[in-house]
Design a protein around this nucleic acid. Structure first.
Length: 182
DNA sequence: ACGAAGATTGGCT
DNA sequence: GCCAATCTTCGTC
């Protein structure tokens, strides 16, 4: 019996998926962690999104596909950013910024508290580009913990000052008082 | 074909 | 708190 999240979880409104992802369990091999922080990127209208104005490139083409796929890319030449595509048709996605590791040792080191640290810890790189989280044998999401609505808080996204009015949108979601949020 | 900038992090002026 | 590291991707020459 599997608790894996199905396609239908991802092919919904992106802001809703971003909120619902909190508390879910990301599993890869023998490593796993609970999602504690996400950010939503809303396709063509969002200046902070790579798909702003419907711009489709070699890098971001996967977000134009259906929801539930991995959009991963290298930033600053050093860090990988792990995103999950959402919606059916719209080029939208959710950036997973931080995890609460399951194992004690990783918890103490806060090894997944930040988008770059998270991918380092899980060994995620371009090899996972386009991976289907609803079908993959090596990476997927499970039901995880249930987070009460009043434990979910929102705020402006991080590192996108160039996006002008879109930089103020409160599309970053995280679990209140969780120590693993970046 | 070339150059600028980036959804970050960690170390030190 | 500020700045360098590091390299792929994209826009432009």
């Amino acid at each position: 019996m599997s608790e894996r999240l199905k396609r239908q979880f991802y092919t919904r409104d992106t802001l809703q998926v971003a909120k619902d992802l909190l508390g879910k369990k990301l599993v890869k091999g023998d490593k796993a962690g609970f999602v504690v922080e996400t950010e939503a990127y809303i396709g063509p209208e969002d200046k902070a999104a790579h798909a702003y104005r419907g711009k489709k490139t070699e890098r971001n083409k996967i977000v134009f596909e259906q929801g539930g796929l991995v959009y991963i890319y290298l930033c600053y030449g050093i860090h990988w950013q792990f995103n999950i595509t959402t919606d059916k048709e719209e080029p939208e996605c959710v950036l997973v910024r931080a995890l609460e590791p399951l194992d004690e040792e990783s918890k103490i080191e806060k090894e997944a508290s930040g988008p770059g640290k998270l991918t380092d810890w899980m060994d995620l790189d371009k090899d996972f580009y386009g991976e289907d989280l609803a079908e993959s044998e090596r990476l997927w999401l499970e039901k995880g913990k249930s987070i009460k609505k009043d434990r979910i808080v929102s705020g402006p996204r991080i590192g996108i000052d160039y996006a002008e009015e879109w930089a103020d949108k409160e599309w970053r979601f995280y679990i209140k008082d969780n120590e693993f949020v970046s």
